[in-house]
């Protein structure tokens, strides 16, 4: 019994049980690498020979009109959708196409959905608890006990996302913006190497947006962040490198200024003017 108890508190004691958090080999280049990825649904080519490289520690914004394939791209990276062709590598060691969603998640890729998805029947605190980076296989999950250390980690994030007051509330009663924040908080608890953030500021006030921008830029460097966003103002405020997707492939890449002056991009966004 004692052994079991200790295993439950295993964070430091049993090193072999700690999921290998950073086996991601980035010595030879980018952290995420998509090559010639294509996928189609019922004849509709959602992603067409997409090539994308994200460097370690980079903050990348991806923009593009509706139907450009942004969400599908995220689905492919996280293992939800299997592409018809192409390859996806996480570091130089992990072929993501061979892995399931939980495997990809435990490799260190976190995702925030376009529509905020939190566990509405659980409290804010419990949402964060479930997200916390730890061994997520069956037995440790069953036996894990709450302790001061875990509590401290969760409270730290609660502070950061400003939901400390609400931590006993069920997540279902949160406002749209609060849910967005909770989901970002869950991402932080996961301590991923790579964050995929789909429309993080939809439904947020100006002030909340600013804080989100601050948070995301703060993360960059330690972690790699890919942000998909429609709000150009927000993109401008955080972006160093911007990729424009159109009809399932990369239309342009560069700094915000380069991209917004690119005639092809203008044509796509503004119509036939060019």
């Amino acid at each position: 019994m004692k052994l079991l108890k200790e295993m439950a508190n295993r964070d430091r004691v049993f090193e072999f049980l700690v999921p290998q958090q950073s086996p991601v080999d980035v010595r030879h280049g980018p952290i995420l690498y998509l090559e010639d990825v294509s996928v189609s649904f019922d004849g509709f080519q959602a992603i067409n020979k997409l090539n994308l490289t994200i460097d370690d520690g980079e903050l990348r914004c991806i923009i593009g009109p509706n139907g450009a394939g942004k969400t599908t791209m995220m689905d492919i990276i996280t293992g939800k959708t299997r592409p018809d062709a192409g390859s996806v590598w996480f570091g130089s060691r992990h072929n993501l196409l061979e892995k399931s969603e939980p495997e990809i998640a435990s490799l260190g890729i976190g995702r925030k959905f376009q529509k905020p998805t939190v566990f509405e029947a659980l409290t804010v605190f419990q949402n964060l608890e479930l997200a916390r980076a730890t061994n997520k296989s069956l037995l440790p999950t069953l036996l894990e006990q709450m302790n001061g250390d875990i509590r401290a980690q969760i409270e730290e994030v609660l502070e950061l996302i400003g939901l400390k007051e609400l931590h006993r509330q069920e997540a279902g009663i949160l406002s749209h913006g609060q849910k967005q924040w909770l989901e970002i908080g869950m991402l932080l608890m996961q301590r991923p190497r790579l964050l995929l953030v789909d429309e993080p500021v939809a439904g947020m006030t100006e002030q909340e947006m600013e804080r989100t921008a601050e948070l995301l830029t703060g993360l960059a460097g330690k972690q790699s962040v890919v942000v998909v966003e429609h709000d150009m103002g927000f993109v401008r405020s955080i972006a160093r490198q911007v990729t424009v997707l159109h009809q399932g492939s990369v239309l342009a890449e560069g700094s915000m200024d380069e991209v917004s002056n690119n005639p092809k991009v203008i044509e796509v966004y503004l119509g036939e003017e060019a």
């Binding site: 939800k80 939980p102 998640a105 029947a121 659980l122 419990q126 479930l130 997520k136 069956l138 069953l142």
Partner: peptide
């Protein structure tokens, strides 16, 4: 069982199965 963290994972997978997977839980094993 339901009071344990596994129980909370159960509820999580009941309400948002895909999200639970993306957190790294092997929902099918649970």
């Amino acid at each position: 069982l339901v009071n344990s963290k596994l129980g909370r994972v159960c509820i999580a997978s009941r309400d948002a199965e895909a999200r639970t997977r993306f957190l790294g839980y092997r929902v099918e094993r649970v």
